[in-house]
Write a protein that binds this DNA or RNA. Structure first.
Lengths: 212, 212
DNA sequence: CCAAAAGTGTTTTCAGTACACCCATGC
DNA sequence: GCATGGGTGTACTGAAAACACTTTTGG
């Protein structure tokens, strides 16, 4: 006999940084604050169905999701006791654009530049972040976040962000080449400062699970 | 506005095998079946409080726990819609004995010798198992499950169970010795078949996180 | 003395690490 | 031509893997 809210922690990778999608709250209380996109659990729906529906309203579908945890503190939201289920998912920025109507009130934020968020959403984000990093390092989900045309320095920046320490450029390249997961697109990333970087894509069925 | 049950998946390691604690159900429906120890979430308690209390009734306290996931299928239990939260924990068999009153109706089962369990408890156990293995391989919780006086072959059996493949005995020993985590107790495991194995304990503050 | 399980060393191989200079572009 | 960032090769080191015989106990 408890209310339960489902909050979505949606991550993306952009230029080697992890970003999370937040919604700008237009109603009281906490009007003007940012928050995680959240829905209430209905009695006639499973969690998976609700999450799928909610992602659909954001213009996404078929994403992998992962439960992060249930938050049950008695005062986590004002008034009635409400459980908070945190669900994590991820999508790539390049092949995805937020629907026009949705975009206005949503925004991607870098993890170390988060605005103040309501309730225990900060805690949810932190816990989801751990889980996200772990998924990226130990599965092949990174492939879905790096569709065609990325540069090696960009990939290296990403791994440095995930691992929390920096890597030697030459050794990083050597490793990726050795693992035989890269395909040269033949194009270069022109128009930037300095020498243009080659653009790559991942080969089909690449296995990154043991890279780091 | 949903009921929620909290089910405990309590693991232990015994002679290189993972075991899970099940309760023999004495009431209808499903009288005679086995199940995970389960309590209902109250409106005035957090999940952590309830789990702690429940563990206390089993005679354990201060254990680490980890949420495994919420199961929300509409028909996972008969009659009313009830969410199922699976919570995993672990304890060592040697330093722990089930309370007399509790022991009668509970039993430890090896994972590949599980009896039939009710509802979706099988699924919970499987998901918890993954999580348990991951915790043991990537944290130092194994230390709490191997208090003083274990043999190296026993430890090796455990790692083989966790990893799902077998290890070379000489290389295993070499690695453990190299990591400098073992302390010889001076005793031997006598009375068994064959040459008695030396008994070890882990040194304080050993780090096993990068062993495998 | 036989069966059963524990203990022990060496060699090879491969991946990780450290490290400094040249190259392609924009301005 | 200079600033900026990208690309490249080599030598060293240390861990992982492969592998067979001896030792200690109980019966």
């Amino acid at each position: 006999m408890n209310e339960m809210d489902i909050s979505l922690i949606l991550f993306t990778l952009d230029q080697g940084k992890i970003k999370v999608l937040l919604l700008h709250r237009e109603e009281e209380p906490f009007r003007g604050y940012w928050m995680l996109p959240t829905v209430s659990l209905k009695e006639n729906k499973t969690i998976e169905e609700l999450v799928e529906e909610h992602l659909h309203t954001l213009g996404m579908k078929g994403l992998c999701t992962k439960q992060v945890g249930v938050f049950s503190d008695l005062k986590r939201v004002p008034k009635t006791r409400t459980l908070g289920l945190a669900i994590m998912s991820w999508i790539d920025t390049k092949s995805f654009e937020l629907k026009e109507t949705i975009r206005e009130e949503h925004n991607w934020f870098e993890l170390d530049l988060l605005p103040k968020v309501i309730y225990d959403h900060q805690e949810m984000i932190e816990k989801a972040q751990e889980s996200f990093i772990s998924v990226l390092l130990h599965t092949n989900e990174l492939l879905t976040l790096f569709p065609s045309d990325f540069t090696l320095p960009e990939l290296q920046d990403t791994y440095e962000e995930l691992l929390g320490y920096s890597l030697d450029r030459r050794n990083f390249r050597k490793k990726l080449i050795q693992y035989d997961v890269l395909e040269d697109t033949g194009y270069k990333n022109e128009g930037m400062n300095g020498r243009p970087a080659k653009l790559y894509r991942f080969k089909e069925d690449s296995d990154l699970t043991n890279l780091f």
